[in-house]
Design a protein around this nucleic acid. Structure first.
Lengths: 190, 190, 190, 190
DNA sequence: TATGAATGAGGCTTCATTCAT
DNA sequence: TATGAATGAAGCCTCATTCAT
C-alpha cells in the first residue's frame, strides 16, 4: 500500500533529523516505519533514493506552513513578514534535512527532479508577487518569476545564517528576520 | 613540515570536488597528497577535522577571487557586478565543497569555528558596503554588517539555483546574475 | 498442472545457463516460467530441489541427442564417432548446467538420486558396447558396464577440456574429438 | 608478508572442503587464517578471487602426490598404477574443491588462467608418456600431449564417479581403479 | 615524523522463503 | 492452486583508524 511508502519517507525525515546525515541507518528508518528491512527496498532501490521523495515532502511542508501563516486579509507587507516567518521556521526546524537535500539531491543523478519538485514552491511565490504587483504595492519592474526564486534563496540563506551564527542566542533570529524584511522592502518597493 | 598539511587540504578539496561527498575516502586524499595513510592522522585527528581547514581555504579563495575581480577605480555599481561575478564563479566551481561545508561544518562540533572562519569574508563585504554608504551611493539606512551577510547569502543562493536549474543552458547563468544585480540595485539604492 | 512444473524446470535450466551458477535467482526462474514467486514453492520445497529434475532433463536431453545422432546402419566406429559428437555438443551447450549438477547434486542429500537419474544413460551406453562386443567388433574382455561409465566420463572430460582450452579456437574442438576417438579405438579394439 | 596470502589460501581450501561451496564464508576463512576480515581484501579483491590461487595449490598438491607415489625404478605399468592411485586419492580427498574449481574457475573471467595453472600438470604427464614411448613400452602412435590431458580427464572422471556411486562401498573404488588401468592398458599398449 | 599493513566494526543490500488474500 | 508483497537473516565488503617499525 502507498501507506508504507509514506511511512518510509516520514521515518526517513525523522531519522535524518535526529541522527544527522552520516549516521542515518536504513535499519533505523525501517524501525520507525514499522516495516521489515527488506521492505524498504520494495519501494526504493537504494538508501539515497528516498531523497527526492523527502525533498517533495519538504516542499509540501513548506508550502503548507506558508499558506497557513499568510492571512489573506492582511496587507502585503504583513503577509511578506508571515512568509519570512514561515520559511525561517521550516528552515530551522528541518535544517539537517535541507542540508541533506542540497548535498545529495543537487548532485549527479537527481538534478532534473529538482526542478520538478520545487516548481510548486516557486509558482506560489511567483503568484504572491504578481498579485502584489497588480495591486500596485511593489514596483512594476519586478519580474515575478525571477524574483520569486531570489526571494526564496535569500530567506533560506538568512535562516541558515541565523542558525549558524546565533545558535546560542535565540533572539538573534529575530534581528535577522527583521534585516531580511528591511532588505526586501527596499528591493521590492514601488 | 607545514607543506604536508597544505597538501592534505589541497588534495581533500580536489577529492571532494571530484568524487562527491559520499565517495571521498581518506585513501584518495592521501594519494593526492603524496603521503602515507597514517601520515594523515599526524595532522588531523579525524577525517572530518579537515573540514574547518577546507572552509578556511575556501574563504581565502573566495576573497582572493573577489579582490582580483574588483577594480578599485570602477564605480560602485560596476564593482558590485564584479563581486557578483566572482561569487558566482567560485560558488559554481566549488559547489560540491560548499555543500560539504554546509552539511558537515554546520553540524555539531564545528559550529563555533564557522563564525571565526567566515569573519574575513563578511568583514570585507561589510567594508565594501560601508565605503559605498559613506560615498552616498547606497542608502543611509543600510546596516552594512547585517546587509553584508544577506548579500553573500543572496548571491550564493542565486549561483546555486543557476547551477541547479540551468546546468544545460549556460547563458541562463547570465540572466540569473542580471536578476541579482537588479534586485540588489533596488535593495540598496539611495 | 504439470505444465507449470515443466515450465519451472525449463526456465531454471535457461537461467542457470544464462546467469551462471552464483547469480541464478528464484525470481529469475519464476519470471521465465511465467508464474508468481510463491507458486514455485508449490512444486519444489526449496530452490535446490529443482536440481534432480534438472539433472533428469539433462540426461534425457543427452540420450535424445545421442539417439538422434547414431545411425543404426552405420558401422560401430562411425557410430562411436556420432556418440562422441553428440556428447561433445551437449556438454558444451549446457556446460554451466553440468557444472551445477556436479557441484550441487553430487553433494549431500541428493547423492542417492544421482544413481537413479543417470541409470538410463549408462544403460544405453552399456547396451551399445554389449552389442559391439557380441558382434565381435570390440575386444571380448571389455566389461560393458564399467566401460560405459568410463567412456562417458572420458568424453565429457574431453569436451570440457576442449571448451576450457580452446574457447577462442573453434576447430581445436575437432582435434580433441579426433584424439578421443583415437584413444577409444585403441582401448576397445579387439 | 606472503605468509598471510598462503594462510588465506590454505584456510580457504579447508573451509570449502568442510562447509561446502555455498556455505563457505569469508569470516570462516579469515578465522582459519588467523587474520582480520579486512586483511583478506588486501590480498584478494573478492571472495571468489581466491579460486585461481586455490586451483594452483591443488595442481601443486596433485603433482606432489603423484611424484611421491611414482617409484622411479618400477616398470611403467606399475608406475601408471601409482599415478592412478595418486589422482584417485587427491580427487576424492578434495572433491569439493575440485567441484568448486570447475564450477567457478571455469566460468567467465578466469578462463585464461586455467591454461596457465594446469600447464605443469599436463606437462609432467606428457613427459611421463613420452619416456614410456621412447622406451617402447607404449605404442608409437600415442601423441603424448593430447593423450596426457585425456589421461588426466579420464582418471579424474573415474575418481569422481567412484565417489558418486560407491560412497557407501569403499572397495568399489578399487574396482573402478582396476577398470581404469585395464582401459588404459589397452589404449596405450604397443 | 613517516610509513602502510593490519584491523574490525558495521551497514547496505540480497534473496530464499512465507503467508494473507 | 495461485499470487506477490512482505519478511528478516545473513554476508560481503568498505574504510576510518591504529600501531609496529
Amino acid at each position: 500500500m502507498d501507506n508504507k511508502k509514506e511511512n518510509i519517507i516520514r521515518s526517513a525525515i525523522d531519522v535524518f533529523q535526529e541522527k544527522g546525515i552520516e549516521k542515518a541507518k536504513v535499519s533505523d528508518i525501517v524501525k520507525g516505519a514499522g516495516i521489515a528491512q527488506g521492505t524498504f527496498y520494495l519501494y526504493f532501490p537504494t538508501k539515497l533514493a528516498v531523497m527526492p521523495s523527502i525533498a517533495q515532502v519538504m516542499v509540501e511542508k513548506t508550502l503548507e506552513e506558508i499558506k497557513k501563516a499568510v492571512q489573506q486579509d492582511s496587507p502585503f507587507s504583513r503577509q511578506l513578514e508571515q512568509v519570512v516567518d514561515a520559511v525561517f521556521y521550516i528552515t530551522n526546524e528541518y535544517r539537517e534535512i535541507f542540508a541533506l537535500i542540497y548535498a545529495g539531491l543537487a548532485s549527479s543523478e537527481y538534478l532534473k527532479e529538482w526542478e520538478t519538485l520545487y516548481e510548486p514552491y516557486y509558482k506560489w511565490m511567483s503568484g504572491f508577487l504578481k498579485k502584489a504587483k497588480t495591486d500596485g504595492i511593489i514596483r512594476e519592474t519586478v519580474h515575478e518569476e525571477h524574483t520569486a526564486t531570489l526571494l526564496i534563496g535569500l530567506i533560506e540563506a538568512a535562516a541558515e545564517q541565523s542558525y549558524l551564527y546565533d545558535h546560542q542566542d535565540d533572539n538573534a533570529a529575530n534581528i535577522k528576520r527583521q534585516e531580511v524584511l528591511d532588505f526586501l522592502k527596499h528591493a521590492l518597493k514601488s
